[in-house]
Amino acid sequence: MSRKFIRNDGRKPEELRRPYKIKLGVVPRANGSALVQSGKTIVMAAVYGPKKVIPKHLEDQEKAILRCRYNMITFSVKDRKKPGPDKRSAEISKLIENALSNVVMLEEYPRTAIDIYLEVIQADAGTRVAALTAASLALADAGIAMKDLIPSTAAGRVNGHIVLDLNKEEEDVEDAIDLPFAYIPSTKEVVLLQMDGIADIEEIEEIIEMAKKGCDKIYEMQIKAIKEKYGSYLEE
């Protein structure tokens, strides 16, 4: 792999997009919220709960139910997106819900619901991973008991180079591989893993290694954001 390879936006292969920004409390009305921006991709997450379950029959006597809705707003993409859920958003919502259920301590909140709303404001690839990164932050911001945060990013192959955090132009390259990934740093459990594209196992090994390193960088930023907002509580 050539070290000199420079990407269409000037990044090195192992670099996250610039800016990579995390902001907490972006929806003051919600119990917790966060915004994640990776280059031109912007996602907001907000949490309501633990709250009463409606409809009541969905209630679980032993734990909270986690409900996640991922949505792209109509002008988040070049061609206006038809409002409302579609198959892609249903799948992504479920995958994010599954990933989060590994860290949220649902047994602490029996007979309640925790709702997580994820809105893609601007899409330039990597919206599901930005959404998952934002979701775990919004949950933490809501003060919900969690075992860890979940950092998430994608890695892949563009024009024969293994790269981190693909933008849309890179993702659309013929022969590109895109591998959305998330893991729990404290346990090394992989909680999101998908891939599109044609790859050898050796390449996949390199790609997930790069994705993991990217997650480690994002994890540091997540912790920093939490400490900045809540540091004074943590010290007490």
Binding site: L95, N98, S101, N102, L179, Y183, I184, K188, E189, V190, V191, L192, L193, Q194, M195, D196, G197, I198, A199, D200, I201, I204, E205, I208, K212
Partner: peptide, 23 residues
């Protein structure tokens, strides 16, 4: 022999070190 798609499904997880041997 190429891998053309991946999907981790359901609530649980695979350990990072399990992925490649499983593939």
């Amino acid at each position: 022999g190429k891998i053309v798609s991946l999907q981790k499904g359901m609530e649980g997880s695979f350990k990072y070190d399990e992925i490649i041997p499983t593939l």
